[in-house]
Computed example of a mutant assay.
Amino acid sequence: MIYAQILAGGKGTRMGNVPMPKQFLTLADKPILIHTIEKFVLESRFDAILVVCPADWLSHTQDLIKKYISDERVHVVTGGSERNETLMKGIEYIQENYGSHDDDIVVTHDAVRPFITQRIINDNIEAALKHAAVDTVVPAIDTIVQGTEGKIDDIPVRSTMYQGQTPQSFNIKTLVNSYNALTDAQKATLSDSCKICLLAGEEVTMVRGENYNFKITTPYDLRVASALVETRD
């Protein structure tokens, strides 16, 4: 079976003084989250589409989906305290409600990347059916500088550098086994879901993203997103 998991657990601290998490802010005429969900309901191969959100915003999320989305595949699930705990809460929901099969896959996506395309979704599904872990990336345009405490430690070769986006897609059994194999210390270092598989020794395959598949994180991002929506309209 094929599942989508939209991660809507962020608090939006970098968005500044706003009344709600960034995924619920309005973009054009509706919440950012709804723009994102709409892209996923267009893909008929998803058996279920999970929206994983903070417990305090569960009712609000359910109300938004009831207002804007008429697709019975969409379910709202309570997330965890951080990204990968939220991811695993979604996996637990899948296994409890749909069972577990060796070839099940999940396509995970940030709720605040509303400009994802059907091509990117399709490429993730096709790649995840063949590989245990998949990351969506774009080539780095600027030189990447690695440093600590205000000093440069290394400048990697730019041609081998990529910027990670989402979706990130997984064979569910491989993802769960990889996560369970990590130590608490390793789990504490996780800033990216694909790193779960890398630390467990699994290969991660790349698929091409798009520069406009960006994450709305700051007020500037929201202004750019609003301009992009107006241009497309």
Score class of each variant (00 low, 15 high):
residue 1 M to E: 06
residue 4 A to N: 00
residue 8 A to V: 05
residue 10 G to Y: 02
residue 11 K to S: 11
residue 12 G to E: 06
residue 14 R to D: 14
residue 16 G to M: 06
residue 16 G to H: 03
residue 17 N to D: 10
residue 24 F to A: 01
residue 25 L to R: 10
residue 26 T to L: 07
residue 27 L to G: 11
residue 27 L to V: 11
residue 28 A to T: 00
residue 30 K to S: 06
residue 30 K to N: 08
residue 30 K to G: 04
residue 31 P to H: 09
residue 33 L to P: 03
residue 36 T to M: 06
residue 38 E to Q: 15
residue 39 K to E: 12
residue 40 F to D: 01
residue 41 V to Y: 05
residue 43 E to W: 02
residue 45 R to L: 03
residue 45 R to K: 07
residue 45 R to P: 00
residue 46 F to K: 02
residue 47 D to R: 11
residue 47 D to N: 13
residue 48 A to V: 03
residue 52 V to L: 11
residue 54 P to N: 14
residue 57 W to R: 04
residue 57 W to I: 00
residue 59 S to E: 15
residue 63 D to G: 00
residue 64 L to Y: 08
residue 65 I to E: 09
residue 72 E to M: 01
residue 73 R to V: 02
residue 75 H to I: 01
residue 78 T to D: 03
residue 79 G to N: 09
residue 84 N to H: 13
residue 84 N to A: 00
residue 85 E to L: 13
residue 85 E to F: 11
residue 88 M to R: 07
residue 91 I to W: 03
residue 93 Y to L: 05
residue 94 I to A: 01
residue 95 Q to E: 15
residue 96 E to A: 15
residue 98 Y to R: 08
residue 98 Y to F: 15
residue 100 S to T: 12
residue 101 H to K: 12
residue 103 D to M: 07
residue 104 D to F: 08
residue 105 I to L: 08
residue 106 V to W: 03
residue 108 T to D: 06
residue 108 T to F: 07
residue 113 R to S: 13
residue 118 Q to I: 07
residue 119 R to P: 00
residue 121 I to A: 01
residue 121 I to R: 02
residue 124 N to V: 01
residue 126 E to N: 10
residue 127 A to S: 14
residue 127 A to L: 09
residue 131 H to E: 12
residue 135 D to R: 14
residue 137 V to F: 10
residue 138 V to Y: 05
residue 138 V to H: 04
residue 139 P to Q: 07
residue 142 D to P: 01
residue 143 T to I: 14
residue 145 V to K: 06
residue 148 T to Q: 13
residue 150 G to T: 09
residue 151 K to W: 02
residue 151 K to D: 07
residue 153 D to R: 11
residue 154 D to S: 13
residue 155 I to L: 04
residue 157 V to D: 15
residue 157 V to T: 14
residue 157 V to M: 12
residue 159 S to Q: 14
residue 159 S to I: 12
residue 159 S to V: 13
residue 160 T to K: 15
residue 164 G to V: 01
residue 165 Q to H: 13
residue 167 P to T: 01
residue 170 F to G: 03
residue 170 F to M: 07
residue 171 N to Y: 06
residue 172 I to T: 02
residue 172 I to P: 00
residue 173 K to I: 08
residue 173 K to W: 01
residue 176 V to M: 05
residue 178 S to K: 04
residue 178 S to R: 03
residue 179 Y to D: 04
residue 179 Y to W: 15
residue 182 L to H: 02
residue 183 T to S: 15
residue 183 T to E: 11
residue 186 Q to H: 10
residue 188 A to V: 08
residue 189 T to W: 06
residue 190 L to I: 13
residue 191 S to Y: 14
residue 193 S to I: 11
residue 195 K to N: 13
residue 195 K to V: 10
residue 195 K to C: 06
residue 198 L to P: 00
residue 199 L to T: 02
residue 200 A to C: 07
residue 200 A to P: 02
residue 203 E to K: 14
residue 203 E to P: 03
residue 204 V to K: 05
residue 205 T to G: 00
residue 207 V to C: 06
residue 210 E to R: 06
residue 211 N to Q: 14
residue 212 Y to N: 12
residue 213 N to T: 07
residue 214 F to V: 04
residue 219 P to D: 05
residue 221 D to C: 04
residue 224 V to F: 11
residue 226 S to D: 15
residue 227 A to T: 11
residue 228 L to G: 00
residue 232 R to H: 11
residue 233 D to I: 12
